[in-house]
């Protein structure tokens, strides 16, 4: 994957997973965390994050609330809801299955016999 492309579905999954791991977090924090987790191999256009956050919120998987950041700055915090957690579990499962299937195709030939 080239360095600056994240497609929509995956981005949503990454956001959910990030919130699951770190708890409530603001948009900037989520963006940084995604980049860090990818070992800086993924470069995110931060602006694209916000429509995704809005969509997830409309789906009811995350909720938002204004709060104060570590540096005493006002920031909007997002957290996972209960149905968000369920959704994450579902998507994780799906993702694992998909990657497992795809992985089989790329596995060495002798594996098949």
């Amino acid at each position: 994957m080239s360095k600056n492309e994240v497609w929509q579905g995956t981005l949503a999954l990454m956001i959910l997973k990030t919130l699951d791991t770190l708890g409530p977090l603001h948009g900037y924090g989520i963006a940084r965390r995604i980049e860090q987790t990818s070992g800086d191999r993924l470069s995110l256009n931060y602006g694209t994050l916000y429509p995704s956050l809005l969509k997830l919120e409309q789906e009811g998987w995350i909720a938002s609330e204004w709060g104060t950041s570590d540096n005493n700055r006002k920031a909007k915090y997002y957290k996972l809801t209960r149905s968000g957690r369920k959704q994450l579990a579902r998507e994780e499962e799906e993702w694992n299955q998909t990657t497992a299937i795809v992985a089989r195709f790329f596995a060495p030939l002798e594996h098949q016999s």
Partner: peptide, 17 residues
């Protein structure tokens, strides 16, 4: 207004960093 605020706070945090 809310979006503008959110983006503003995002920018500020990034600048701080």
């Amino acid at each position: 207004r809310e979006l503008a605020d959110e983006l503003e706070s995002h920018l500020q945090m990034h600048i701080d960093d």
